[in-house]
Design a protein around this nucleic acid. Sequence first.
DNA 1: TTTATACCTATCTAATAGGTAGACATTATA
DNA 2: TATAATGTCTACCTATTAGATAGGTATAAA
Lengths: 147, 147
Amino acid sequence: MLTKKGKYGLKAMAHLARFAPGRPVPVLEIATTQNIPKKFLDAILCELRNCGYVVSKMGKGGGYTLARPADQITVGDIVRALDGPLAPLPCASKTRYRPCDDCGNVERCAVRLVMRDAQRALSGVLDNCTLARACELAETIPLCYHI
Amino acid sequence: MLTKKGKYGLKAMAHLARFAPGRPVPVLEIATTQNIPKKFLDAILCELRNCGYVVSKMGKGGGYTLARPADQITVGDIVRALDGPLAPLPCASKTRYRPCDDCGNVERCAVRLVMRDAQRALSGVLDNCTLARACELAETIPLCYHI
DNA sequence: TTTATACCTATCTAATAGGTAGACATTATA
DNA sequence: TATAATGTCTACCTATTAGATAGGTATAAA
């Protein structure tokens, strides 16, 4: 389950992808239009900057910009940066593998093998979805969409 | 991310699937062989019983049995019962949809649309994986498996 | 009647999520 | 150069949840 941090971060990145073809976007603008607590968003963007996904410009007229084009940052990148590994269990993670301490036979653990499949499926979606594609998806969807 | 509850529950169910073609298995046996805290497992199995996935028999010679054949219970069932919806966000859940309160336009929310894809991918794996298949997977895997 | 088991209620502790406060640094621009 | 608009940093707070543990009660087979 994605935390609010992850969700807010993704929404902010999508905002930057859509509305920033150059000029820096102030945190306050993102916070108000996306309904995100300003101070919380401050912390999130700061983290994304430290990871190299956004660039900040201080002072008047400052704000945040994507560090790379929107089609070169994936949703998986952002989720991993803010919420950690995609895999349901650390022992099934590709990027941050850690064995379970309660697991006797890691290689033949049924739970782990299933969760590796799950991880593959999840990263197949999130690592192949760029911010650009996500925005596009939202814009081209038919208006009458049935939940 | 799966919680320990979910993980322990799955391991216990896999144990039942493998080692119980009839006789009830006591909690203590599962707890010791699977390295799960006994009292914690008590609570988990009780929950699974309330959901109808296992059957308990009290008294001497008692224990737990699968309520249905192992090929008729999926990993997705167990995970949902113990850890809640598979979807990374409630607004992307099929089984327990709930809109985000911070989301202005639910239908065109880029984050939600991506997470719906993620949900589909995840449930595609977990809902199509039965306990029987999970055990089989672990048994037929080659010994020299490269992490 | 004894023993092995499930079942129930209560409680505990540590971590985490989610958020807030306020001082401080930086910079465009008037 | 003063000032206003912004990001940056450190510290803190509160509620909830994860992850257990303890101890007793009910049930049933031998």
